[in-house]
Design a protein around this nucleic acid. Structure first.
Lengths: 332, 332
DNA sequence: ATGAAAGCGCTAACAA
DNA sequence: TTGTTAGCGCTTTCAT
């Protein structure tokens, strides 16, 4: 393992001072054409690559951003969501010379680790994803003094800087679509009402139904799980045997609902139309294939990252809500 | 933003030299009980956290490992796999004070980034995941001189250090299971034969069939995609109308195969038993639910990381093949 | 426009 | 056992 090439080597090779080399590297002003050329050639010839650690130490910035994920539920959570967010984040990070640090912070141990990262100033900024309600991560991050961007919102407090999908609008347009199909007795299976997404999608449902002058009382509360969806569907069917459509706040719950509907011999979409939310892979494989609301997940990752970069640069970005799209399949 | 606490502060506060402080932090020997206590108290009282960057620079180690992923196919790839590997990796990294750096290296840009990381000695080791055949990443990583661990193998060359699932054994036991069910005309839909997994699973099939004294000629080649699986199933049905079982090298292909079987009115599993591979979420939602081979994905992540840590410590670990398990559902 | 030198906060070698 | 000091490789004043 031969000694790595340093600034001094480059300086020597180019016949200039290390100050000049440094200026060229950070393309600072006050460098003569000649010197710049010489340095650039030296860098090329020696295949010099600056030592990131040294840059960080001298430059007082870490050169890395953290993506912290506060979910321990690989089943529900991982479904493409994770991969897609990371893809989006990576795309933007790639354009910079920052590093992307990943921290799974659902456990105490994970949070402690994150906390050390903050205290040790081991990152220039943080993106927080999949926070739970009253997630300690939020306070932890804010108190660090580092720039923080949230993916999604929470019920307890509106983050200062966030990117979120338009859950309410997505739900509203899903229900409006059902109504446009001629359905008049539209029910909903909600997600957990202690989470922002759950509430937002429920509000979207109500908005559409009430605006259309229809009855918004056909409601069963679920918990985003398939089993919960099945239970809620059963309850709905028992209480409102006349319903002709259901807006379900997640695809997983919709899958559960579809099984119940099938078991009861209810025709989908003929008797009851069903719309889900999320567009997970499974949505294509339910019977019938599920009409659902798709979130722009990689865009979420990209915009979170852009926002964080601006924050790091000292700008004050504005929070963002990204539009969703309705994916029409056979269930409605 | 007040000046962060440094070693000198701690030293002063504890009334010892910075050498002693440093020794305590790295729990080196030659520290008196008394001094250690004093330092520890000072650290507590000042809430001192060492600056990672400075540690790295002085200590000549980066304090981070890279997880590089060479896949751009979020659809196929992301299905839980990604999240589970990361979960496993994170679990082990969490026990150390290393950072986990994520690099998506499917593009030229991503590879270039990785290359800089290597050259800039911006990591202590690398884990390579989801490499394609003849993936340039492999050479890139090896040439860096850093410790490298591969997740999975490739056809072109056996990595020096790898962790892989027992694809061959998993396939073999899946087919043996079919045979134990009384099936005698077992076909297979293979995965891409230019990938190690594809070949390994095919070999496992042959092994089981031939060892049982059965005919191993009922073969159709697929490409791991759902559409490919459907096409292969059609071909199989046309060429071998007598088949009574199919081992399909991936769940996605199995989903495609099941659709074809259903369309042709073939009863599963009564007429034809089907077994898949991977145990993706979708496997539970096919009709009928898919019997499949599950890989220990989070264990893969964990073991890769352990292996890398040992490599970084200068040990010479041995490559690992992790056992798979058969998950019985309704399709066989 | 350029060079010299003082750090950044820590580790490690060497003295004491 | 403890203290001192010289770096790690870079950035950034401050002179020149």
């Amino acid at each position: 393992m031969n000694r790595p090439v340093t600034v001094d080597d480059v300086a020597k090779h180019a016949g200039v001072s290390i100050g000049t080399v440094s200026r060229v590297i950070n393309n600072a002003p006050h460098v003569s054409r000649k010197a710049r050329d010489a340095v650039e050639r030296a860098i090329d010839e020696l295949a010099y690559v600056p030592n990131k650690t040294a840059q960080s130490l001298a430059g007082q910035r870490r050169g890395s951003v953290v993506l912290a994920i506060s979910s321990d539920d690989p089943g529900l959570f991982a479904n493409l969501f994770f991969a897609q967010v990371v893809t989006g984040v990576n795309a933007v990070v790639e354009e910079t010379d920052l590093e992307l640090q990943l921290v799974l912070a659902a456990s105490d141990r994970g949070r402690a680790r994150l906390s050390r990262i903050f205290k040790a100033r081991a990152a220039d900024g943080v993106m927080l994803l999949a926070l739970k309600e009253n997630d300690p991560l939020s306070a932890l991050a804010e108190s660090s003094g580092l720039p923080v961007v949230h993916g999604g919102r929470s019920l307890d407090s509106e983050p200062r800087f966030y990117v979120d999908a338009d859950n309410r609008g997505g739900a509203r347009s899903a229900v409006e679509y059902l109504i446009s199909l001629g359905r008049r007795r539209v029910a909903t299976i909600t997600g957990s009402q202690d989470q922002h997404v759950g509430v937002a999608r429920y509000l979207g449902y109500r908005e559409a139904v009430v605006l259309a002058g229809l009855d918004d009382s056909r409601v069963a509360h679920g918990d985003f799980s398939e089993a919960g969806g099945a239970a809620a569907m059963t309850s709905l069917l028992d209480r409102f045997p006349d319903l002709d459509a259901v807006f379900v706040a997640s695809d997983a719950m919709a899958a559960g609902a579809l099984s119940v509907l099938a078991a009861r011999g209810v025709q989908v979409p003929d008797e009851v139309a069903v719309v889900g939310f999320n567009d997970i892979v499974t949505a294509q494989h339910t019977t019938p294939a599920l009409t659902t609301v798709r979130q722009p997940i990689d865009a979420l990752g990209r915009e979170m990252t852009r926002m964080l970069l601006r924050l790091i640069d000292g700008d004050t970005p504005t929070s963002l809500i990204l539009p969703t799209t309705l994916v029409r399949r056979e269930s409605a």
